[in-house]
Amino acid sequence: MTATAALRARGVVVRFGAATVLDGVDVDVRHGEVLALVGPNGAGKSTLLAVLSGDLEPVEGTVEVLGTPLADWRLRDLARERAVLTQEHHVSFPFPVADVVRMGRSPWRGRAEEGLDDEVVAAAMATTDVTHLAPRSFGALSGGEKGRTSFARVLAQATGVLMLDEPTAALDLGHQEAVLARARQAADDGAAVVVVLHDLSLAAAWSDRAVLLQRGRVAAEGTPAEVFRGPLLSEVYDHPVEVLPHPATGDLLVLADRHAGRSTTQKVNP
Rank of each mutant, 00 (worst) to 15 (best):
L233N: 02
V196T: 08
H259P: 00
V120I: 15
E166N: 01
D129N: 14
G222W: 10
R182L: 14
D23A: 14
A140S: 13
F151I: 06
L7M: 08
E57G: 01
D172P: 14
L155T: 02
L180N: 11
N41F: 00
G115E: 12
G222E: 10
A123T: 10
L171Q: 06
A134N: 01
E33P: 01
L180T: 12
V195A: 13
A181W: 07
E221R: 15
N269Y: 13
V130D: 09
A112W: 02
V59C: 13
V196W: 05
E226V: 08
A83R: 12
A183V: 13
L35F: 06
T68S: 01
A140Y: 00
H31K: 03
L213T: 12
A43M: 07
A3T: 12
R258T: 15
F138N: 02
T249W: 05
G174A: 12
P96C: 05
V14A: 05
A3Q: 12
E114F: 06
L52H: 00
M103F: 12
V243K: 04
R215I: 04
M103S: 01
P40K: 09
P107H: 00
G261T: 04
E177K: 09
L35V: 08
T264H: 12
R102G: 01
R8S: 05
E119G: 09
R217V: 10
A3C: 11
G147H: 07
D23V: 00
A112G: 02
T168C: 04
E114Y: 07
V13N: 09
R209V: 11
T149V: 14
Q176M: 10
L164G: 03
T86H: 08
E57T: 11
L233I: 02
G54I: 05
Q185D: 15
E81D: 01
A123H: 07
G230H: 01
E119V: 14
A19G: 05
L233C: 02
S234H: 02
R184Q: 15
R30P: 06
A123R: 14
F16S: 04
P107F: 01
L202D: 03
V254Y: 07
A134F: 02
P58N: 07
G67W: 08
A248T: 15
M103K: 01
E33D: 05
K146Q: 15
Q185A: 15
Q157W: 04
V12I: 15
P167V: 08
H90K: 08
A98W: 09
D251T: 15
V34M: 13
F138T: 07
L155S: 00
L233R: 04
L173S: 05
S142D: 07
L52K: 02
R15T: 12
F138R: 01
L75W: 06
